[in-house]
Amino acid sequence: MRGWFAVYLRELLILRKKIFRQMASMAVGPLLYLVAFGLGMGEGVHVGDRSYLEFLIPGLVAMSSMTQSFAIASEINIARFYWRIFEEFQAAPIRNIAYVTGEVLAGVTRALLSVLIILVIGLLSGISLCYSPGFWLIVILNSFVFASLAVCLAMLVKSHADQALLTNFFITPMAFLGGTFFPVERMPSWVQSILNLLPLTHAAKAIRSSAFGLRFESFSCLLLGLLGFILFVLAFLSVNRAKE
């Protein structure tokens, strides 16, 4: 595992160089959704006994932790195809697992930063929910799943354009359909069955439940943990493919 910190530190240094730009970009999406869906729809809209804004914030947390952790794929691709930094890691005496760990943790860090931004925006909008250790555990698990997926795909794609295609086909639909903006339970049962296959549906459900101070969704948590483990192993196995 030696060397993971160097990989992680490099990503942190790059993040630090453009921290204000990055934070602004992380805030734009949630702000737009809050204005369009939260304020635009008015306070009259309720989901169960919660206002729509209260319903939306945990959904945005789930979505943002997914998109921001997955965005590590773009950083890897820029390093791999544009700056050729990947060669530097490959020539170093570190194991593939150290490389994957460093990149996945960098993805998780980005995700946590974006979640903090959403929570601050939520607080400024007058929304204060229950941010318990259970809430943070699920956020971290969700970020871990998508950061591992990002590293795996970043190792398999042949160009930056391929990566953008994967984002358009998998991440964007999931962001809208994974229980972020509406309760999945309102959909027809066959659609629910499909949506329940998406990790984001489980993440949104579990994050929302914790944020509302309801029961801890241990099944969703377990599922995310298992999926995260599988994707991490796949990411590790993909590194050798990228060498050629």
């Binding site: 060397g3 160097a6 490099r10 240094l13 790059i14 700056w83 050729r84 530097e88 005496p93």
Partner: peptide, 22 residues
């Protein structure tokens, strides 16, 4: 090909390399 981290400083590039080599 020049495969330095263009965003990082000269010092940071060398430091990361040193860390990668423990």
């Amino acid at each position: 090909t020049i495969n330095l981290d263009h965003e990082l400083t000269v010092y940071e590039n060398l430091d990361i390399h040193g860390r990668l080599f423990h």
